[in-house]
């Protein structure tokens, strides 16, 4: 429509993403019988990190640029989204491929940042991250392709709406696959393997501190929110009403519910090992391919 949609997109995501992490932490705390931090804690954390000094441990310009690139690319992805049923101002010059490109770019920036830091834990983390991206990006792509198959268009709005256009067998299969993969998209247990605090000390981020780290955290929060949002709009889009305000409110509510679910699953599972997870991911990719095949057949 117009430029305001882009601004609203950005504001909506930027404002809400840390809050959702707060929800996650609160729910996890409740399951662990703890008080837990207040819901606004992630904002404070970000502010605090932003106020710190930037240590460039690696002394490499790539190391400094990586967080900016990651943050910028995820913001670009967010700007494209058809939030609340409008297509964004940028929609006519972008499509699914742009979205996937930006998302992959942000993952890729984390990788190069990690590799530039030269820390052995970061490189183990980076290699795990890389495997995760390679295995899971297809699941995301297949989900959207499901919509493309139904709507016949690569633009974002019809494609996301198309996912739930026919609610046959392929729809439910894909939904299940996506839900499982979501845990890995948002990197919570059992799939928070690239970060695994006790093993490789937050892996790719181990050398980061201060504002750079804050950017990575923010990126992670935005990504988490994006993947949950995609689930809500894609798979539950048919539930959302026409009016943009009401649409947005209900969307937000559903995203919240989804976050609670993610936290519950995260808090009740140990972390898998990479080799175990890879087998799992391979299964997911196969199933998502199957779902697309079924959709082409019209099931």
């Amino acid at each position: 429509m117009n430029a305001t949609a882009v601004v609203i997109n950005l504001i909506y995501f930027l404002a809400l993403a840390p809050f959702l992490e707060g929800v996650m932490r609160k729910v996890t705390a409740r399951i662990q019988s703890r008080q837990g931090p207040p819901l606004y804690q992630p904002y404070l954390d970000l502010l605090k990190l932003l106020g710190k000094e930037n240590l460039n441990a690696a002394g490499h310009p790539v190391f400094r640029l990586a967080p900016l690139l990651a943050f910028a690319s995820v913001l670009s992805a967010v700007a494209l989204l058809p939030l609340a049923g409008w297509s964004s101002f940028l929609a006519h010059s972008s499509d699914l491929m742009t979205l996937i490109y930006f998302l992959t770019l942000s993952g890729f920036s984390i990788l190069i940042g990690a590799l530039a830091s030269g820390n052995p834990f970061a490189s183990v983390g980076a290699s795990r991250e890389m495997m995760t991206i390679i295995m899971l990006e297809p699941v995301l792509a297949m989900t959207l392709i499901l919509g493309v198959v139904s709507s016949g268009s690569l633009s974002l709005l019809p494609a996301t709406a198309g996912v739930s256009a026919t609610r046959g067998f392929s729809y439910f299969l894909m939904m299940a696959v996506y839900l499982v993969a979501l845990q890995a998209f948002v990197s919570r247990q059992p799939f928070d393997i690239p970060e695994a605090e006790v093993e490789i000390l937050e892996g790719p981020y181990v050398e980061y501190s201060g504002p750079n780290y804050a950017l990575f955290r923010y990126t992670l929060n935005l990504k988490r929110m994006f993947y949950s949002w995609l689930f809500v709009v894609g798979f539950l889009g048919f539930l959302l009403p026409e009016g943009p305000v009401l649409n947005l409110v209900i969307q937000t509510g559903l995203v919240l519910v989804l976050f609670v679910l993610i936290s519950v699953v995260g808090a009740t599972h140990p972390r898998f090992r990479m080799d175990q997870a890879l087998k799992f991911y391979a299964g997911l990719v196969m199933l998502s391919l199957l779902a697309v095949g079924l959709r082409v057949k019209g099931w």
Binding site: I31, Q32, P270
Partner: peptide
């Protein structure tokens, strides 16, 4: 905690 299952830890 070491296998990433912090709820066991807390309980």
């Amino acid at each position: 905690h070491l296998i990433g299952f912090d709820t066991v830890f807390m309980q």
